[in-house]
Design a protein around this nucleic acid. Structure first.
Lengths: 213, 213
DNA sequence: TTAGTGTGCAAGTGCTTACTTGCATATTAG
DNA sequence: CTAATATGCAAGTAAGCACTTGCACACTAA
């Protein structure tokens, strides 16, 4: 019984992985159970023996997702307490995760109205943890006077990640050639944000200033 | 012949309007020709007499789009040459347009990979004009010393609009209750951005500072 | 009037979809 | 060994899809 159940779960996992991939690439509406089964390497009937319907498969996929986890940056040790360095580190990690899962991000943005519960759950699982951490980090900054006290930190963090998200979307959507590099964009986002949130910004000099002047 | 052609074009326009609406709400993949015809109030056959295929209808829709036009803010008169005031004005206009066309924005973000030409054209038509204007505006700021000279203005403008776009997406996607208001978010985006791009930011005081202190 | 044009309507084609049924087979549990 | 379980395979169902055909009707141009 032990080994049997494990084999069944193995098939189930292959189906979940395949479904995530196909949902991301074809969109939820565009994904077909045939294609999901084909990618999983199982018969389509097997899919329906594991999941009652395409909709329930989507639910299971969403609950199963660990793909978007940005598990690094979890340990407080990595924070240097230098706003610019820490935020730049975070920005690149976040951006890399976004780029790695571009299709998934696009799909859930596009279908969020038609599958609100799935979208909510994905967003929750993927971004919420880091968001909290960043907010706490900025709160510490407020505590020691490096971050402006008059900010709504949740909104600040969301606008920061928002810049990065929108940058990714623009870069990969556009057949339009961009007139700046990814590096320029991300570094400048960090630069703008740090200047924006820093207290006594005149006294604050970022490494970027040194490079550029 | 004159009246005949005008009636045909009238039907065509109703189809284009309906198609835009249905594409936006159901997604491009999810939209059906039946539904589009129903919304347009014409027979489905008529749709195919005007457009060879669903794909070609999409092309026509994209070329026909004027919905996203932000026609205000076109006249230079409205610029007060106060960064904060001008950008705040712009931010709210931009945000209102985004919110008014949320479904359309989501759809084209979600399907950009599957319909790159359509996405490119929509993006071009909708945002490019304003983008140029904002860049020129900031260039003037650089000229008279209110805006930092070491910025990539295209990237700066894109990160600004990106914050606003992401804010809209987050607000309307989330069943998650936000812990700040739309007003807080947008005003703070402007505040952060203005501080970020301003030269000699210590000397620069925004109206928000006055309100809050 | 005559001829052309734009549309509606009913029906249908061929294809794809989500999902089902029945049976064969292989693996495994007890 | 025996019985249960997991899967494959072939076929099928009912519905929905994009798209077509043929005919009737109204309107208009000449």
């Amino acid at each position: 019984m032990e080994k049997t159940r494990s084999k069944r779960e193995q098939t189930r996992d292959r189906l979940l992985d395949a479904a995530l991939k196909v949902f991301a690439q074809a969109g939820i509406t565009g994904a077909t159970t045939r294609e999901i089964a084909r990618v999983a390497g199982v018969n389509e009937v097997t899919l329906f023996r594991h999941f009652q319907s395409k909709e329930q498969l989507l639910e299971a996929v969403v609950q199963h997702v660990s793909a978007l986890q940005i598990e690094a940056l979890t340990n407080q040790d990595e924070w240097t307490q230098n706003l610019f360095i820490d935020l730049k580190h975070y920005a690149w990690l976040f951006n890399n995760t976004l780029e790695a899962h571009e299709d998934l991000v696009r799909t859930f943005i596009g279908e969020a109205r038609r599958h609100p519960e799935a979208a909510r759950q994905i967003l929750q699982e993927a971004a919420q943890g880091l968001r909290e951490k960043l907010i706490v980090y900025l709160q510490q900054g407020q505590g020691n006077g490096t971050v402006r006290a008059d900010l709504d930190l949740a909104a600040a963090v969301d606008s920061f990640t928002g810049m990065l998200l929108a940058g990714m979307l623009r870069r990969s959507a556009a057949s339009i050639p961009l007139d700046y590099s990814r590096e320029t964009y991300i570094d400048q986002c960090v630069d703008l944000f740090v200047r924006g949130v820093s207290a006594s910004s005149a006294a604050f000099v970022t490494p970027l200033d040194v490079e550029k002047s």
